[in-house]
């Protein structure tokens, strides 16, 4: 039954559905050199999303993160084909930045892009590098969202790098992908009162007790569900949240309520909890 103390867990075990929608804030798409994916196309990913009741996936295609030629073609067609299911983060390839073009595309397709994705570890460029300033200035002015790959101890997107940017651009909404895995206690201290800094759960399932500690130190109102889909099974993430020693109210915040509030700033979004 997964967890005898959770009604959501019992629902899932007994009926195959928790009866709770999910908003997934950390996804990808398409093939990737280091991994074999059974299902990395939009249609393949939708099969999992449908079964898991994932209303919407916010993603940045692997192609857009590794091929600097054209972000649009990897995102616009997919989101326009499935407008109720996908939204994209425009990639920021730190060594190939063209902020003017990127911002123009985000402005040109407001129904496609919800903001930017930063993957600094993979490009070996610190988040606080001046090359990122135009993007954060734009995000700060427009109140759009960014997803940042964060990892404990990283000189590129560890706690100290995120802190520098948060202090410089206080009005941006930061989604910290992987919740500073490995240096989370430091992150809890630094971002405890930073209301615009959200902790996202991809990779968190790989350390038992992590979910509980984020709830304890940051609160489920600042936690977002994420899977790296098509990397990790959505049901693996669900199983983690259902297994954690937290309340079903916390679980609902993580699965969709926190995200529902965040997305309500976009005109294209119809809130679940309207």
């Amino acid at each position: 039954m997964i967890n005898n103390k959770s009604e959501l867990a019992q629902n899932l075990w007994n009926t195959g559905s928790m009866g709770c929608p999910i908003l997934d804030f950390h996804g990808h798409m398409h093939e990737y050199s280091a991994i074999y994916f059974p299902a990395s196309s939009p249609e393949g990913m939708l099969k999992t999303m449908d079964r898991a009741n994932v209303r919407m996936l916010m993603y940045c295609s692997h192609l857009a993160l590794y091929d600097p030629t054209d972000d649009k073609k990897y995102h616009v067609d997919v989101v326009k084909k499935y407008p109720d299911r996908f939204r994209a983060y425009h990639s920021v390839l730190s060594r190939y930045t063209d902020p003017e073009k990127a911002i123009r595309e985000v402005e040109e397709y407001p129904d496609v892009y919800l903001g930017f994705k930063f993957l600094c570890d993979y490009y070996a460029v610190p988040l606080s590098s001046p090359v990122h300033d135009p993007f954060f200035k734009y995000l700060n002015d427009t109140k759009k969202i960014c997803l940042i790959h964060t990892w404990g101890g990283s000189p590129y997107n560890g706690v100290d790098e995120i802190r520098k940017v948060v202090e410089k651009y206080p009005d941006v909404t930061y989604i910290c992908g992987h919740s500073f895995f490995g240096d989370e206690n430091h992150a809890f201290d630094v971002f405890k009162d930073a209301k615009n800094v959200y902790f996202e759960l991809t990779a968190v399932p790989l350390m038992r007790g992590f979910v509980e500690r984020i709830v304890q130190h940051i609160g489920s109102e600042r936690m977002l569900f994420g899977t790296d889909l098509p990397w990790f099974s959505t049901f693996h993430g669900i199983g983690t949240v259902l297994s954690a020693d937290i309340t079903d109210e916390d679980r609902k915040n993580i699965f969709y309520k926190t995200g529902d509030k965040l997305l309500s700033r976009y005109s294209w979004y119809t809130p679940i909890d309207k």
């Binding site: 867990a9 899932l12 399932p205 049901f235 199983g239 983690t240 259902l242 954690a244």
Partner: peptide, 12 residues
């Protein structure tokens, strides 16, 4: 790892 986390992967 969490004891129940792979159960939904199989069940669903």
């Amino acid at each position: 790892l969490y004891i129940g986390q792979q159960m939904p992967v199989v069940k669903c």
